[in-house]
């Protein structure tokens, strides 16, 4: 739609019309366009302007990653060990495993399964819960959930803290999974749902046999995005882990501890977070690729990913 052929055809029409030059009476049209040649020049300059200033945003992550790379290359007392990634990845995977079933069920509920009147408010609630600050979740886990859990694991504070931290991480990433899942479900063309309804499918059958296979790999993408987020999430588990003392801690909390201590030496910090950056980058990129690819496939390869996908009749 916003391709290169739009203005060209417009230009053609304008050129064909007589009196497109400067001699026109002033009016809306005259104010809007000042002739095809000048308009082409304006468009050209506009394009150069956007192409130069639009990618300014590119500088930011490259600055961060560049510094990280420099930090890793710099000599340091503690060599990077791939093993430091283990608690991070394990924690993130556990949190996503805990959060995924209710989150995916929620995205099915707010798209097809639930009663019509409940879908909107439920979707709104799930979307709202994604913007609750992670530090609030962390404080809740530290003050309320961990003491509650202690009753079940008397005498083993490490288990209490571990499970509480996984629970807090799961609370922080569940809305992400639910939102991505909902978008995926909404990307399934309405025609297919109408066809299933015409075949006599119930709403559960639509969710189970139509939506689930249709979004298939996209769901794995949603989970991968969540793993990336959980790995980088420090605020939700900071209080719990700081109170537990130095044990096997996720990298994000280690980094937070270094930053809090104030002695931010970029080299040391970069050394610490480089494996974390790799984990989040790989998980997020793979996840996004899967999700976007699924959406494009569902839209028939035509729609741009940013466009909200059209639903026909909802069941």
């Amino acid at each position: 739609m916003a391709g290169e052929d739009g203005p060209a055809s417009v230009r053609g029409i304008r050129v064909a019309g007589a009196g497109a030059g400067r001699g026109r009476p002033s009016g809306t049209l005259a104010a809007v366009g000042a002739g095809p040649t000048r308009r082409a020049a304006v468009d050209e300059r506009f394009r150069y302007f956007l192409s130069f200033f639009g990618p300014l945003v590119v500088l930011v992550p490259f600055l961060v990653i560049g510094i990280a790379v420099v930090g890793v290359a710099a000599p340091s007392s503690s060599p990077v060990s791939p093993l430091t990634v283990l608690p991070t990845v394990a924690g993130a995977l556990a949190a996503v495993a805990l959060a995924a079933p209710p989150a995916l069920a929620a995205s099915a509920y707010v798209t097809v399964l639930g009663p019509r009147a409940l879908r909107g408010p439920m979707a709104r609630l799930v979307a709202l819960s994604s913007s609750v600050p992670a530090i609030v979740i962390g404080a809740f886990a530290y003050f309320s959930f961990a003491p509650f859990l202690e009753k079940f694991f008397p005498g083993s504070p490490r288990a209490t803290i571990g499970f509480s931290a996984i629970f807090a991480l799961a609370m922080a990433v569940a809305p992400t999974i639910a939102n991505v899942g909902r978008r995926l479900a909404l990307a399934v063309p309405g025609v297919r749902i109408e066809a299933a309804l015409a075949l006599g499918a119930t709403r559960r059958q639509i969710a189970q046999r139509l939506l689930l296979p249709a979004v298939g790999r996209g769901l794995i993408g949603a989970l991968l995005i969540a793993v990336g987020r959980a790995a980088g999430e420090a605020s939700a588990i900071l209080l719990l882990v700081l109170a537990a003392g130095p044990t096997m801690t996720p990298i994000s909390v280690d980094a937070a501890r270094v930053v809090l201590a104030g002695g931010v030496a970029l080299g040391g910090l970069a050394h610490l977070v480089a494996p974390l950056l790799v984990v989040t980058f790989v998980a997020q990129t793979a996840g996004r690729t899967l999700v976007e690819g699924t959406k494009r496939r569902l839209a028939g390869g035509l729609a741009r990913p940013a466009l909200p996908s059209p639903w026909g009749v909802r069941p």
Partner: peptide
Amino acid sequence: WVVDLLAGIPTLLFGAVAAA
């Protein structure tokens, strides 16, 4: 591509880089 990448960087790092 870069904005998607940016979304994946833990926000803590921005603060750390700015501080440093």
